[in-house]
Deep mutational scan, measured.
Amino acid sequence: DETGKFLVLALYDYQEKSPREVTAKKGDILTLLNSTNKDWWKVEVNGRQGFVPAAYVKFL
């Protein structure tokens, strides 16, 4: 159920650099879980949760 969740689009490829991050490919649609940090947003992609740089994604 996606009610109340926001989707964001990956603008660039991002390769995770730590276990707390997730890899995303340009064009991926990610479920935004938390955007309270202006630099790192928590997302879910391909069943995995983790952080990506906020500058790499935008709201749909």
Rank of each mutant, 00 (worst) to 15 (best):
residue 2 E to R: 14
residue 10 A to T: 09
residue 9 L to F: 09
residue 23 T to K: 02
residue 48 R to S: 05
residue 59 F to D: 07
residue 23 T to V: 03
residue 57 V to M: 11
residue 15 Q to L: 13
residue 12 Y to K: 10
residue 18 S to E: 08
residue 21 E to K: 03
residue 4 G to E: 12
residue 21 E to L: 06
residue 23 T to L: 04
residue 3 T to P: 13
residue 1 D to K: 13
residue 41 W to T: 01
residue 36 T to G: 09
residue 33 L to T: 03
residue 56 Y to I: 15
residue 5 K to L: 12
residue 21 E to W: 08
residue 13 D to E: 07
residue 16 E to I: 05
residue 25 K to I: 07
residue 53 P to C: 14
residue 24 A to F: 15
residue 29 I to G: 01
residue 56 Y to Q: 04
residue 45 V to S: 08
residue 22 V to K: 02
residue 51 F to H: 02
residue 28 D to H: 05
residue 6 F to E: 08
residue 30 L to T: 01
residue 28 D to P: 03
residue 18 S to I: 04
residue 59 F to L: 15
residue 35 S to K: 12
residue 31 T to C: 12
residue 40 W to V: 01
residue 36 T to V: 10
residue 47 G to T: 05
residue 8 V to R: 00
residue 22 V to H: 03
residue 23 T to N: 04
residue 57 V to D: 00
residue 57 V to Y: 03
residue 21 E to D: 05
residue 34 N to W: 08
residue 8 V to K: 00
residue 49 Q to A: 09
residue 50 G to P: 00
residue 21 E to R: 03
residue 21 E to Q: 10
residue 14 Y to P: 03
residue 54 A to K: 05
residue 30 L to C: 09
residue 18 S to H: 11
residue 57 V to T: 01
residue 12 Y to H: 09
residue 10 A to V: 15
residue 32 L to E: 00
residue 18 S to D: 10
residue 2 E to F: 14
residue 56 Y to D: 02
residue 4 G to S: 12
residue 6 F to C: 15
residue 39 D to A: 09
residue 22 V to I: 14
residue 27 G to T: 03
residue 15 Q to A: 11
residue 32 L to C: 07
residue 18 S to K: 05
residue 40 W to H: 01
residue 40 W to T: 00
residue 50 G to T: 02
residue 5 K to Q: 11
residue 46 N to A: 09
residue 7 L to P: 01
residue 28 D to A: 07
residue 48 R to C: 10
residue 1 D to V: 14
residue 21 E to F: 08
residue 17 K to C: 12
residue 13 D to G: 06
residue 47 G to V: 03
residue 27 G to A: 03
residue 60 L to Q: 06
residue 23 T to C: 10
residue 3 T to L: 12
residue 19 P to R: 08
residue 56 Y to K: 06
residue 26 K to H: 05
residue 6 F to N: 10
residue 9 L to M: 14
residue 8 V to P: 00
residue 52 V to P: 01
residue 33 L to S: 01
residue 16 E to F: 05
residue 19 P to K: 09
residue 49 Q to P: 04
